[in-house]
Design a protein around this nucleic acid. Structure first.
Lengths: 208, 208
DNA sequence: GTCTATAGCGAGATAGAC
DNA sequence: GTCTATCTCGCTATAGAC
């Protein structure tokens, strides 16, 4: 009953199921998703889903792992390479997240919801945590004054960059905006945010 | 089978169920919540839940409406009263959200998830939209240059204020921080953010 | 109003033919 | 590998006694 890995032609069906699961899970979350709907979306039969992935939960975990990687690797890339100019790093991070979230608008809520409901996720099964430590040069992460400022900067940067995607529907609804209008707003933020964050950086250093 | 409104002693049980539902729904969302768990949490029998609230969905809607009100009324208060100083308004908004979200950390994800899955929510059943129009002085909301800047400012402010609460578990997990350490960080942001946002405001006006 | 017992159904998973 | 049919269980909702 276990899946054979090295046959070469079954990849197409497996991939169809994964793509369908990605769509459904991201739209509705785990509990509200129905395996029948995933099968329909994939254009295959429900039994095949269990044939390839054994269970709904297992399929979900696979999708979740991939999405966590996509989402957090952007931050990890940001954290390493201390040589690079701070402004350049921030611009890169903003551009990467903007591009990603225009394509996959539901990603942040999907990931944040999962982690909120399962806060031990990193501790138990993630290699992402290891990657972060690695990116920080294997120094033990101590809550020192300087690192605190770094973290405040990172939180602000992520907030101004990602949150507008999270609250998108509320704002569009409240202010009667079309998706195109809102996207225009989001793209303009790419220029705006680095200047803003640079100011924050100076401000934090001036406080000392 | 309908609930009698004007009896005076039944309020206790009804309130117990509502409080329990609030807890469970906010923790798990609608689909992952079990009415049995809500009943257990309330210390009453499952049948009573349906006696008082008819259905799970109805109970959920009641909780959701209240939470939407709590969450968005802070923004609405911010939008009206144009006479008040901008810095003061921003500080108030930051303090209100920080106080609220320290008490109810799961509120933003709960609301954002619901609206993402049901974007027509405002259009169909909300009086919040009306309140926003009212707060803006009954002017039709047109996507003009000046209002665009206002909106960028609002999005940034909400982002730096609320997002750190949303990403809390990820950051605590990644950086091995305790809840107390993270809360300390959050409180410090109350001072930091108004200065930052003021800079953004100047920046936007200088661009013209 | 509050309880026990249960109806009824929706959904995940599997058996087994092809 | 892929399908149809079905098993089984968990969950919402209700019937009915007290």
């Amino acid at each position: 009953m276990k899946k054979e890995i090295d046959t070469q032609k079954d990849k197409s069906t497996e991939e169809k199921i994964k793509k369908a699961a990605e769509k459904i899970f991201l739209e509705r979350g785990f509990s509200a998703s129905r395996t029948r709907d995933i099968a329909d979306e994939a254009g295959i039969n429900l039994a095949l889903l269990n044939y390839y992935f054994r269970s709904k939960k297992n399929l979900y975990n696979i999708i979740m792992m991939e999405k966590l990687d996509v989402f957090f690797n952007i931050i990890i890339e940001e954290l390493k390479d201390n040589a690079v100019d701070l402004n350049q790093k921030m611009s890169e991070l903003i551009n990467k997240y903007t591009d990603l979230l225009i394509k996959e608008p539901r990603l942040p809520l999907f990931i944040m919801s999962e982690i909120q409901q399962n806060p031990d996720f990193f501790t138990k099964r993630m290699n992402i945590k290891m990657k972060v430590r690695e990116a920080l040069g294997n120094k033990p992460i101590i809550y020192s004054k300087s690192q605190e400022d770094d973290l405040q900067l990172l939180l602000s940067l992520l907030g101004v960059t990602i949150f507008p995607f999270i609250i998108r529907h509320s704002i569009q609804g409240l202010f009667n905006m079309t998706t195109d209008q809102y996207n225009e707003l989001l793209y303009k933020r790419r220029e705006m945010i680095p200047k803003l964050m640079n100011e924050l950086y100076n401000q934090l250093n001036a406080d000392k």
